[in-house]
Amino acid sequence: MPLCNRHLLGLEGMPKDDIQLILDTATTFREVLDRPIKKVPTLQGKTIVNLFFESSTRTRISFELAERRLSADVVNFSADASSVKKGETLKDTARNIEVMKIDMIVMRHTAPGAAVFLSNVTGAIIINAGDGSHEHPTQALLDMYTIREKHGRIEGLNICIVGDISHSRVALSNIFGLKTMGANVAICAPKTLIPCEVEQLGVKVFYNIDEAIRWADILNVLRIQLERQDRAFFPSLREYRQHFAVTRERLDKSKKTLTIMHPGPINRDVELSADVADSEHSVILQQVLNGVAVRMAVLYLLGTRS
């Protein structure tokens, strides 16, 4: 059974079967990553362009590794060295790349909906690698993969996303995906960093990190962006740390052992204390490794879908 859609633009509305298929396929590729020769010929002859309009280390490397391990031809494009600086539109940039006979575009962009726009103006298969504060579907898929790997299931688990929800593409994709897979989802943040009418997405809201810890089986901690202080979203990093940071002392008060996740990059000792980040309950590095397998699965399923 192929995926419903020829692009991966987001997890909103993606059927459970499709998510399941991606996660199951990722299991196969995860095993490939443990082999001495970590390469399969699946996408040989396919050309993939990584179109990154925003700086990203982890996601870009993860995609590139996934593409190369599937034997695809890879071209990297970053905004700094591009015609974008000369005022070219996204549509023109994309069409110029497309005319050189490429098959897929993986795009990271600042504008919400940019991936949808790209899919409307080009014929290539589009994978959204993050569009502003809208969606980051492969991140949520690798988060779900990691949860399933650690807990054996997703359904019925209590997962709390902690941090800047308003400006996070990771939060939104996680909420969509986790709800579809039957998890209970909560968010925890200062009220100023929670978007309007978020409860309509079917999530629980905590303003108190200790309550969130008591409720949760898993904490997915988001990076707090220092520049948010500018528009009065929160008073200071010190205040944030004191009231919302996930620390050893706070976790020790819980009877459960919580799994700690973070999409990176971490502000050590701001949103997450260093000892927690490096503890045995942290799956942060597994997330990164699983990211390659999940992206291989997505690329494979979309690239070979007839």
Binding site: G132, H134, C196, E197, L201
Partner: peptide
């Protein structure tokens, strides 16, 4: 509103 939350705008 709800839609801006849904779209991350």
């Amino acid at each position: 509103g709800y839609v801006s939350t849904l779209l991350g705008m």
